[in-house]
Computed example of a mutant assay.
Amino acid sequence: MKAKKPNWLITSLLIVGSLLILFPLYLTITISLKTPQELADSLWALPKEWRFENYLEAIEITNFFNAFQNSFLITIVVVIFTILTNSMVAYAIARNLHKKFYKFLFYYFVSAMFVPFPIIMLPIVKQTSSWGLDNIVGLMLLYIVYGLAFNIFVYVGYIKSIPKELEEAAIVDGASTWKVFWKVIFPLLTPMNATVGILTCLWAWNDFMLPLVILSDSDMATLPLVQYMFQGQFSTDYNLAFASYLMALAPMILVYIFAQKWIISGVTKGAIK
């Protein structure tokens, strides 16, 4: 068999794309390890003095571990409840799409993906405040609800590809609808559960706007919000700022590196099947 000739156009685009991703990361790491004087002398060069103390100072100034705890708690709870609740709603819709009411529900949920958040931001802030939900619990509930639109879209597409004969066999054996879902359908949703869980994890951890407008107590601040609150303090010391940014980004970078195959394959399966 003849060896395929390399496609230089695609290869060049991949190289350029990789550089566009890696170069900002290189700058973030090097700036976080420089002194203010080194940063003023040269932005691009490697640091002459590797100041790991910048990370310790950033941790102390931003109360990093408190914000990390808040972000971790919110992310874990949101991921678990999103998978459990959104999959059940999607299953009920997917198996009843032949009915007008459920078809309306499907398009109603999916249409929410096209509603920009700034349009509903003010009503949400006023409502959560009046209900006493301007806290971490309210933030978790909003994440779970706001994830419904996209999650139902991918879940329904995947569930429709699961043969109904599996459910019919379980019902013949005496299983209830509830048991059919948890014993038959939910285990088969593992690839899609992984995809939804990873995407929800990335969103809840990195989101800035929703915590900014919902949370009223600085002790409840998440990592992205802490970076914003201390922006003025970092205006003359970007070394500490970049050290703090890198620590906040590091957990999700690791999650994405190890889980990107489930993200890509899961979204493709949910959209096509």
Rank of each mutant, 00 (worst) to 15 (best):
D173M: 08
W182Y: 09
P251C: 04
G232D: 11
P211N: 04
P251H: 00
F181R: 01
L199Q: 01
I253L: 10
Q233M: 14
G232K: 06
A241V: 11
I253W: 02
V213T: 07
M229W: 06
L202N: 00
L188Q: 12
K179R: 15
W182N: 09
I185L: 06
V184R: 01
S176E: 03
F230D: 00
I198V: 09
M209P: 07
S176F: 08
F242W: 01
A221H: 09
K183G: 13
P211S: 05
I171N: 07
S244C: 10
P211L: 06
F234Q: 01
A241L: 15
N193M: 13
V196S: 12
I171Q: 10
V172S: 11
V226P: 06
A250N: 06
W182L: 10
M220Y: 11
V196A: 10
D217A: 08
T222N: 03
S244E: 06
G174W: 02
F208T: 00
A175Q: 09
S176G: 08
A241M: 12
T236A: 13
L246H: 00
A194L: 15
L223P: 04
M247E: 03
Q233G: 15
T190E: 14
A169C: 06
V196L: 11
W178H: 12
L202Y: 02
A221E: 11
T236P: 09
L212D: 06
L199N: 05
L188T: 11
A194R: 07
A241G: 13
L240R: 02
I171V: 15
T200C: 11
D217R: 12
L212E: 10
F186W: 07
C201P: 06
L223C: 06
Q231E: 14
W203F: 13
Y228M: 13
A248G: 06
P187M: 10
S176Y: 04
T190C: 14
M192N: 05
